[in-house]
Every structure is written in C-alpha cells, then in structure tokens.
C-alpha cells in the first residue's frame, strides 16, 4: 500500500491512521466535541514531527462527510493545512463509504451483501446511502441524502439489507416496507480512519485527488433554514 495519512472526524469518533511501508498505524478515540482539541496530539503520536513527505506520505485522505458540521470542518481545515504545507494531494472519501468499509473489515457485512450506511443528522433526520459489496469492493447505489427516517425507501426488488451507523438508531421510525428488508442493524458502528486507507488508495490510483485549495466538507444538507429578514416577522 502507498503512504497515506487519513483523518476521519465526521462522527463522535476522532480517528487518524497512517499507512507506511505496508504497516497501518491508527489512533481512534470516541471524543464527542473534542476533535479539534485531540486531533494534533493523535497525529503527533503517529508522526512525532509533521514532516509528511520525509516519512513517505504521498497523499492525505479525509472523510469528507456527511456528518457533524463541526467535525467535517475539523477534518477539512486540518487537511487543507497539511496538504498545503507538505505540497501533497488530498483524497476525499465519503464518510458513509468509510463506515461500510469499517463494517466489512469488522465482519458485520460480507461479500455480496447490501448495506444501508446511516449517520445521525440531528433534527430528526439521518444521512443515508446504499452500498453493495462486490468482491470486497464497495459500490455506492445512488447519492447520499439527508431525510427523516420515515422517508427512507428501498427498491421492491432489493434483497435484504444490513443497516449500520449512528443513524440506524432511528430506524424504528422508518416505513414498514423499509424495516421489512432489514436483516441486521448495528447502531454502534463508527467509521475508522484505517478504513479510509484502501478506499483512498483506489481513488488515488484513479486520479481522484484534490489540491489543498479544493478541500471542502460535503455537508449533504446545504439548505440552511435560518430566517432571512423578510421571514423574521415584525421588525420593529
């Protein structure tokens, strides 16, 4: 495997991993709301100095989202800075895909299965994308979306599905037709940075890289519901 540093901070987990000379090192902590505080200590445990290129790092992968807005910005800002300072490319990877890769490595899903990857989106919504595992590779079926659990749908012809992630905790509110397709639910799974590494390696090989300036969170929920002045009611 190529030398890649990976950062995943979209959920309650602050997770960093490093692949160097075929060896994978990881620091993974469940530290809600403390990602920006912990991130640099964890990075320093993997690489005592920040000289990425000298340590054979060729690219910096990050979980681009969706997930906690603040968490996404911690990863994006860190990757912007590291990629810019070290003149390295960045590789964005969907956090929902990373989560499925974690589930696959941990044996929660197996080859040939369908997976609904779900993350708590707050305000009674979930982020969701469907994946199929084919020969150890993840194939995403359709775009990631943010919706209330009651709006989740699966095609009638789809075989049974495994649901993973913090958003799966809300599946009791999903439509009966959706729930009928679920063969297993794991609500505790959190995406781990080490599982970004193989996904990033493939993306890197396919040239799917970004310049530091292009690094952005993928919020999925882009319509912001604050009221503009005309909607704020009486002004005086």
């Amino acid at each position: 495997m190529r030398g890649i540093l990976a950062i995943e901070t979209a959920t309650d987990a602050c997770s960093v991993a490093l692949c160097r000379g075929g060896e994978v090192l990881e620091r993974h902590e469940v530290t809600p709301r403390q990602h920006s505080q912990r991130l640099f200590s964890m990075l320093a445990e993997l690489l005592p100095d920040g000289r990425l290129a000298e340590h054979g790092i060729e690219a910096i992968a990050y979980g681009s989202g969706p997930g906690s807005f603040t968490g996404l910005r911690v990863a994006a800002s860190a990757v912007q800075g590291l990629a810019y300072a070290a003149c390295l490319p960045a590789v964005p990877v969907s956090t929902l895909a990373c989560q499925v890769a974690t589930a696959l490595r941990e044996g929660l899903v197996t080859d040939g299965q369908r997976v609904a990857s779900l993350i708590d989106a707050r305000i009674n919504e979930v982020y969701c994308a469907l994946f199929q595992v084919e020969s150890g590779q993840l194939v995403q079926c359709g775009p990631a979306q943010a919706c209330p659990p009651s709006a989740l749908v699966l095609p009638d012809a789809m075989p049974p599905v495994v649901a993973v992630g913090s958003g799966a905790a809300y599946l009791d509110k999903a439509p009966a037709a959706f729930r009928a397709k679920l063969e297993h639910i794991d609500t505790t799974l959190l995406p781990r940075a080490r599982d970004l590494l193989p996904l990033a390696e493939r993306a890197l090989a396919a040239g799917q890289v970004q310049d530091a300036m292009q690094v952005r969170p993928v919020y999925v929920r882009d319509e912001i519901n604050w009221k503009k002045i005309p909607q704020q009611g009486k002004q005086r």
């Binding site: 920006s36 991130l39 640099f40 990075l43 320093a44 100095d49 920040g50 000289r51 990425l52 910005r73 911690v74 800002s77 860190a78 990757v79 912007q80 800075g81 590291l82 810019y84 300072a85 070290a86």
Partner: peptide, 12 residues
C-alpha cells in the same frame, strides 16, 4: 485554529 495548527505542524 485547526488550519493554523495544521499549517504549523506541516511546516515544522
């Protein structure tokens, strides 16, 4: 803060 610390770390 995160951008500044990442830049600083990367630059040493």
């Amino acid at each position: 803060a995160t951008l500044a610390r990442a830049l600083a770390w990367g630059w040493g």
